[in-house]
Amino acid sequence: MTSDLRDRFEDMGRELAAKPHLLRLGALFSETVLIEIDGNEYYLAFHRGELERVTEGPSRQTPWRFAIRTDAEALAKFWEPVPEPTFHDIFGFVKTGRGRIEGDILLLVKNLRFFKEFMALGRQEEATA
């Protein structure tokens, strides 16, 4: 399960690399993001908008700028082709208490369109882009 998710994030990275508009939006984004699902850690290292590598935790040495923590069911609902209300956006996790966003939230907000569209790449069909 955990490696499946790493594969999924890596697939999303390949899709990201094929989307020039996202690479343009993320051109100033060179940061590591922690995505924690049911306590399993995935460190997504971006460089100039490209996803360079995905590293599984646990790790206390890997610095990250912001983190999204939720559960596998919520993430699966987020990735439905047409997500139900509150699962259609990463802030829905926070609003409903199904997850948390931590760290440098302003940095996330400055790159919000880029990061939201990256996260939506996990959907089977593009529904919110």
């Binding site: 047409v82 829905g92 907000v109 919110t128």
Partner: peptide, 15 residues
């Protein structure tokens, strides 16, 4: 404006 748009997209339905 760009940040505001990206935030309010949370309030737009996918349909």
């Amino acid at each position: 404006g760009e940040m505001g748009a990206a935030l309010v997209s949370a309030n737009i339905a996918p349909q």
